[in-house]
Amino acid sequence: MTAIEIVGFVVSPAHAYEGRPSDGPRPVATTTPDTITIRAGHGVVGDRYAGRAAHRDAEVTLLAVEALEAVAAELGVAPFDPVAARRTILTRGLEVEALRGREFAIDAGDGPVRLGGGRPAAPCAWMDVVLAPGAHAALRGRAGIRCAALSSGTLRRGPATVTVSDDLGEPDPARAGLPHRRRTRA
């Protein structure tokens, strides 16, 4: 069990970063609530990824704010607003990238919420516009992970614990972001 801090959440009914970055973000009513409700197999209630077939096994995104702090320092710019990265759950004290291909539970005081760590949440070119020039390349390999919502529950900002399941055996290559063979039709 690891003690962490949940520093924030981002919940948005639509994508703000669509189209050309030079056109600027779309005006979308993004919220940064103190609590979120996660539904198993669905995602965060009210979020753009919830219940979408294309985001099955990727309903929730997780990012360590330490990665954003490191990138800002490397680029020599002021600290970024972590909400601009638009990841669902923002943490401090958690090695997020180590959770790829692992099942884990986050408990913020209302009971554990199980998530399945999947592929990397790759940064997009928008990061050069909304964070700083060079942020897109600097965030590669540390922009967080996409997760499947395996159980339902509530998470809140503040202190939390993370428990990683060690009984899962070998991670599924598709969920760990590793190369795998696709089936082809004959």
Rank of each mutant, 00 (worst) to 15 (best):
L68H: 04
E103H: 12
T30H: 12
A54M: 08
A84T: 14
A70N: 02
F104R: 05
C124D: 07
R182G: 05
L90I: 06
R182I: 06
G117C: 09
A125R: 15
R52W: 01
I6Y: 02
P27R: 05
V129F: 11
G24Y: 09
G93I: 04
L139S: 00
A122Y: 00
A98P: 02
M127P: 00
A138E: 01
A121M: 04
D110C: 12
R100C: 07
R48S: 09
G51K: 04
T184I: 13
E103V: 15
G116N: 00
A132T: 11
G109F: 06
G134L: 03
E170D: 13
P171Q: 05
P112K: 02
R100W: 01
S12H: 10
A50P: 01
D23I: 09
T163S: 12
G43E: 04
A125I: 02
L178P: 00
R114T: 14
P123R: 01
P133I: 06
G117V: 08
R157K: 14
G76F: 05
G41C: 07
G141A: 10
S165W: 13
A40W: 01
A149M: 05
A53W: 08
E59Q: 15
A50L: 05
A70V: 09
A160Y: 05
R39P: 02
L150G: 02
P173S: 08
R140W: 02
A148H: 03
R100A: 14
T154M: 14
P159Q: 14
A138N: 00
H136K: 03
V10N: 09
G134C: 05
I89P: 03
H55S: 01
T30D: 14
P79W: 14
L94C: 04
L62E: 07
A174Y: 01
H42R: 03
A78L: 14
R26F: 02
I106T: 00
D57I: 03
R48N: 05
C124A: 07
P13R: 08
A3E: 15
G144F: 06
Y17M: 11
L62I: 10
G118F: 07
V77E: 04
R39Y: 05
G19V: 07
E97N: 11
A160K: 06
V83R: 14
E66S: 15
A73T: 12
T30V: 15
R157V: 15
R142S: 07
I106A: 00
G111R: 05
R185P: 09
R52H: 03
A108Y: 08
S12V: 12
A176I: 03
R102S: 10
C147N: 15
P123A: 02
R92S: 15
G134S: 08
D128C: 11
P173C: 08
V28S: 04
L139D: 01
D107M: 00
P159F: 12
A73Y: 07
A73Q: 13
V130P: 09
L168S: 10
T37A: 13
G116H: 08
R146S: 11
D57H: 14
V96L: 10
A29F: 04
S22Q: 13
